[in-house]
Amino acid sequence: MKVLITGTAGFIGMHLAEKLLERGDEVVGLDSINDYYEVQLKYDRLRKTGIDPASIDYGNLVSSEKYPGYRFIQLQLEDKEGVMKLFAEQKFDKVVNLAAQAGVRYSLTNPDAYIQANIVGFLNLLEACRHHQIKHLAYASSSSVYGTNTHMPFSTAHNVDHPVSLYAASKKSNELMAHTYSHLFGLPTTGLRFFTVYGPWGRPDMALFLFTKAILEDKPIQVFNFGEMKRDFTYVDDIVEGVVRIVDRPPVADPTWDPDTGDASKSKAPYTVYNIGNSNPVRLMDFIQAIEESLGKEAKKEMLPIQPGDVPATFADTTPLEKEIGYKPATSVSDGIQRFIDWYREYYNA
């Protein structure tokens, strides 16, 4: 299988590329390498997959020194001409879109970045998939799409029409756009609603990274919603295993599906959406305590109200994933945190 993975200088993308390469797939990785967070971490992720950052030349493929089946290209999805050229030349079988402008709070002050990367970029990808007979497009959505929904656990059958951040709105838009292309052009698409992913090589803007760094530097951590937040923290290897299994199972059209009574995550078109989460919400204060225990050091805490755009809790109902794909994430938060901190200490010599 020849797979395009977008976002391979990113957290999940790097891990997914390694997983597919290790099982023998041919992979082309794509990333814009923007400066949303420290670029050095992105370059080091690329190095881990055998890509020499010094060899990167925008718009041109470079080969991995570690994996014979891996090549990488620096390219923006907003660059429609570049995207179309890549698809025409490479003849991909399947595509996994993990490239996006991430972050809820950043979207409050930088909305344009989300429209360009998450809407315009995704449209270009859909167009390329449509014109080049891609067998399956799997794309990252987010638990953020559940917005003001308070019915727990979050089910893919629930209404997701009330987002509370532009980031969430852009991810919901991706699901709508994907369904349109599945309906009009028969493109099989699967949306992947990830729930608070964490683990080694993670993003520096995420809570685990921020908390670990601050505690080690004897700086206070910001604890929002006075510690009463709950998150369905999901370890990165569990996310990747779910993605791989889903990529291997393109959705098929269901002509019997009823738009009035049918599951909102299905369709008459070859379209579906899955939650990928640990199905075990953890209180933020308990999460912090696990970090403290792993580090052997207590955090200085600055208790703050909930931030605009945040939701108080997330909780994934993964029943369809279990029934249809035969998979359920299972890594405990304590194990996942320990693995992250082991990596963090080694990477930063902390």
Rank of each mutant, 00 (worst) to 15 (best):
K2W: 06
K2C: 11
V3N: 06
L4T: 07
I5F: 06
T8M: 06
L16Y: 09
L16W: 04
L20E: 04
L20S: 07
L21A: 08
R23I: 15
E26S: 14
E26Y: 07
G29C: 06
L30Y: 05
D31T: 10
D44H: 13
R45N: 15
R45S: 13
T49K: 02
D57E: 14
Y58H: 14
L61P: 01
Y67D: 01
F72T: 06
I73F: 02
L77G: 03
L77W: 10
K85L: 01
K85H: 13
E89A: 14
V95E: 03
N97G: 06
A99V: 05
A100L: 10
A100I: 06
A102R: 03
G103T: 12
V104C: 04
Y106F: 14
L108I: 00
T109F: 13
N110D: 13
Y114G: 11
N118Q: 06
G121C: 03
G121P: 11
F122L: 09
L125R: 08
L126S: 10
E127W: 00
A128G: 07
R130L: 00
R130P: 08
R130G: 01
K135W: 00
H136D: 06
H136E: 02
A140I: 08
P153N: 04
F154D: 13
H158Y: 07
D161M: 11
P163C: 14
L166V: 07
L166F: 11
N174A: 14
E175Q: 10
S182W: 03
H183E: 15
F185G: 02
G186T: 09
L187P: 05
Y198S: 03
Y198N: 07
R203A: 13
F209S: 13
L210C: 12
L216T: 13
E217L: 08
E217C: 00
D218F: 02
K219D: 02
K219Q: 15
Q222M: 01
V223F: 01
G227I: 03
E228A: 09
Y235R: 05
I239Q: 05
E241S: 14
V243S: 10
V243G: 04
V243D: 07
V243P: 09
P251K: 08
P251S: 12
V252E: 14
D254F: 04
P255M: 11
P255K: 11
D263S: 12
K268I: 06
P270H: 10
V273I: 14
N278H: 12
N278M: 08
S279T: 12
S279P: 01
N280L: 09
P281K: 03
V282G: 01
M285I: 10
I288H: 02
Q289L: 13
L295N: 11
A299I: 03
K300F: 03
K301P: 09
K301Q: 12
M303I: 09
Q307A: 13
D310G: 05
V311N: 00
A313Y: 02
A316V: 05
T318D: 05
T318I: 15
T318W: 00
L321S: 02
E322R: 14
I325L: 08
A330G: 15
T331A: 12
D335M: 08
G336S: 09
G336M: 01
Q338L: 02
D342V: 12
W343S: 12
Y348A: 07
Y348S: 08
A350V: 14
